[in-house]
Design a protein around this nucleic acid. Sequence first.
DNA 1: TAGACGATAGCCT
DNA 2: GGCTATCGTCTAA
Length: 207
Amino acid sequence: MTLPEALPREFFLQPTLAAARALLGQTLVRRFEDGDIATGRIVETEAYRTDDPACHAFRGETKRTKTMFGPAGHAYIHMNYGLHYCLNAVTSPVGCAEAVLIRAVEPLAGLERLHRNYFGDGVPPFDADLPIDKRLGAGPGRLTKAFGIGPGLEGTDLTDVSSGVYLAVGEGVADAEVVTTTRIGITKGAELPWRFYVAASRFISRR
DNA sequence: TAGACGATAGCCT
DNA sequence: GGCTATCGTCTAA
């Protein structure tokens, strides 16, 4: 399979809210160590800005948030609730810490590999004839599990097709299909309408 | 160095 | 709809 073209660095230098909106309809590409490829269409994102109390970097740079203060277009991956990893794309220049959280994707390619990552070799067995299981992409902790994204990929350059994970040019999404709403699962800044999703997608974590 | 808590998901009722 | 597992990081002492 030919690898899709990566998004350019400038994409991640647009204002964070614009980048969160623009990431809908783009493609998440995962290249596994053994050469397997899996891709997904991004259908849900959230913006986190440095002036935002819900942003991990709100209180300044720490060991955890170091990559958010680094160059745009890199992956900020963190664990929360001691159980799940979340994938973010850094969207601000060096010294400024903003990012877009990828909350949901629609699996496009590498379905069997995603299924195995998520469920192991157990149940339910993979069946290419069934509709794609929503758990492979609908939720920030789920997509990282299915795509095998963990702390080992922290800081990865998402604009480089040779990276283990990167973001590629997709078909985009028309404005009429996009819903803008408040963010999920946070207590601070929860009223800010900084979550975007594709209305028609099955793979939305919450409506 | 201890204590609190969080950008969730899965299982139970 | 409610409950809770589980751990890295931050914060205060």
